[in-house]
């Protein structure tokens, strides 16, 4: 599935939205180079939920590396795109539930910015689902786990982002 490095850039870019790769090849693919996912978690809710999941010894995919931000409103498209450009196959932002942001509106800004990044990615031929945002409450460990595993599965189905 991974195109040889000498192929033209267009051929290396997968079809948008198409996913007709058999499952067995996906698994082989995932093993063929570990994915890297960078997650920006807000200090109040998402990072709390992550710590709580950790304390409960919940197994989580090791592809995900977490970075704490004071509020998801701190995350700008620059951070997400830089992470993708520099080694990550996926990025996501996790913050408080809508209407419960500790800083009132930070997560709304973040939702807008992630949507912008997705549009930008799509416009340059990269799968938009490589950038996502999830909201959750600090008490909702199951949601943190589910979104982390879900993002890991999504990125596993996609090829590694090509690097120049």
């Amino acid at each position: 599935m991974n195109a040889p490095a000498t192929a033209t850039p267009e051929a290396r870019v997968p079809e948008l939205g198409a996913s007709d790769v058999p499952v067995s090849e996906v698994i082989a693919d995932a093993a063929d180079g570990e994915r890297a996912i960078v997650a920006f978690l807000c200090r109040e809710c998402a990072y709390s939920a992550a710590d709580a999941a950790g304390n409960a010894r919940t197994p989580l995919p090791p592809t995900i590396r977490t970075i704490m931000v004071p509020c998801t409103g701190r995350v700008s498209p620059l951070h997400l795109l830089a992470a993708l450009a520099d080694g990550a196959d996926g990025v996501y932002v996790a913050g408080c539930l809508e209407g419960q942001c500790h800083h009132r509106v930070g997560n709304f800004h973040a939702l807008d910015r992630v949507a912008f990044v997705r549009r930008l990615l799509e416009s340059v031929g990269v799968e938009p689902e490589r950038a996502s945002m999830f909201t959750m409450s600090a008490a909702d460990t199951p949601r943190f786990v589910a979104t982390a595993r879900g993002m890991d599965a999504t990125i596993a189905r996609l090829p590694r982002l090509p690097r120049s």
């Binding site: 931000v69 004071p70 701190r74 995350v75």
Partner: peptide
């Protein structure tokens, strides 16, 4: 919270301990 820092077009605004340089 840093919303301002993320919006700032010139990069003049930052948050102590959470600057763009540190996050990147």
């Amino acid at each position: 919270c840093g919303i301002c820092a993320a919006e700032c077009p010139s990069g003049a605004m930052t948050v102590g301990g959470f600057s763009d340089a540190e996050l990147l």
